[in-house]
Simulated assay, not measured.
Amino acid sequence: MENSVDVLIESLLAATLRLEQEVSAKDSEPEVWLSLLDERENLILQAQKQELVSESLSESQRKKMEQIFEINQRLVPLINNRKQGVQQQLNNLQRSKLAMNTYNEAGPNGYGAFFDRKK
């Protein structure tokens, strides 16, 4: 059983490190994040099935779990910042779309200039 616990913790640490690399990359895709988060969730569920408790972990296993926790603490703000950036882009896009619809309904425009008839 000790060997399977080691493999489980190593796999969780590896998945967490890959997630950190993906989130830290500026051009990474959230779909990749989701697959890594799903993988980590499955590993965590396996650990819960084995009823891992901190008292039953060896010192090296405990250190790896602490490393995973520290990485998680760094990842949460990074993911939240990226999420806010995407939300801001969506808001800007909706505003632009609304402005375009408003002016397109207003009437003709010529050479990129708008003729505002809503006075």
Results as ranks from 00 to 15, higher is better:
Val86Thr: 03
Asp116Tyr: 02
Tyr103Val: 02
Ala99His: 13
Gln21Trp: 02
Ser24Gln: 08
Val32Tyr: 06
Asp38Phe: 08
Gln73Ala: 13
Lys119Gly: 12
Gly112Thr: 04
Asn92Ala: 11
Lys97Thr: 10
Leu43Met: 08
Leu37Ala: 05
Arg74Lys: 11
Glu105Arg: 15
Gly85Tyr: 02
Lys64Gln: 07
Ser24Leu: 03
Glu41Lys: 07
Gln87Arg: 06
Gln87Cys: 02
Arg74Trp: 02
Ser28Leu: 05
Gln84Ala: 07
Ile68Phe: 00
Arg95Met: 12
Met100Pro: 00
Ala113Asp: 11
Gln67Leu: 14
Met100Phe: 14
Gln21Asp: 15
Pro77His: 03
Asn81Glu: 11
Ile44His: 07
Gln84Pro: 00
Ser11Arg: 09
Ser54Lys: 05
Lys49Gln: 14
Ser56Phe: 01
Lys63Asn: 09
Asn81Asp: 07
Val53Tyr: 07
Leu36Thr: 05
Gln61Leu: 06
Lys49Pro: 03
Glu51Ala: 08
Val7Phe: 10
Leu34Pro: 02
Gln89Lys: 13
Leu12Asn: 07
Gln67His: 11
Met1Asp: 10
Gln94Asn: 09
Asn109Ala: 14
Leu43Lys: 01
Lys64Thr: 01
Gln21Lys: 15
Ser56Cys: 04
Gln89His: 08
Glu70Asp: 10
Trp33His: 09
Ser35Ala: 12
Tyr103Cys: 00
Ser58Ala: 02
Ile68Lys: 00
Arg95Ile: 11
Leu17Met: 14
Ile9Trp: 00
Ala47Met: 12
Leu37Tyr: 03
Gln21Cys: 10
Leu8Met: 03
Gln67Met: 11
Leu43Gly: 03
Glu41Asp: 15
Ser60Thr: 13
Met1Ala: 13
Gln84Cys: 05
Phe114Lys: 14
Ser96Ile: 03
Val32Thr: 14
Gly85Val: 00
Ile71His: 04
Pro108Ser: 14
Leu34Cys: 07
Glu55Cys: 02
Asn42His: 10
Lys119Phe: 06
Arg62Trp: 08
Pro108His: 07
Lys118Trp: 02
Leu8Arg: 04
Val32Met: 09
Ser60Glu: 08
Glu29Asn: 12
Leu75Glu: 00
Leu34Arg: 15
Ala15Trp: 05
Glu22Lys: 11
Pro30Arg: 08
Ser58Gln: 00
Lys26Cys: 03
Gln73Val: 13
Gln46Phe: 11
Arg62Tyr: 05
Asp116Met: 02
Ala99Glu: 11
Leu90His: 07
Leu78Arg: 02
Leu90Tyr: 04
Glu29Asp: 13
Lys49Gly: 12
Val76Ala: 14
Gln50Leu: 08
Gln61Glu: 09
Val32Ser: 10
Phe114Cys: 05
Gln87Ile: 03
Met100Leu: 15
Asn92Leu: 11
Leu90Trp: 01
Glu22Pro: 02
Phe115Lys: 10
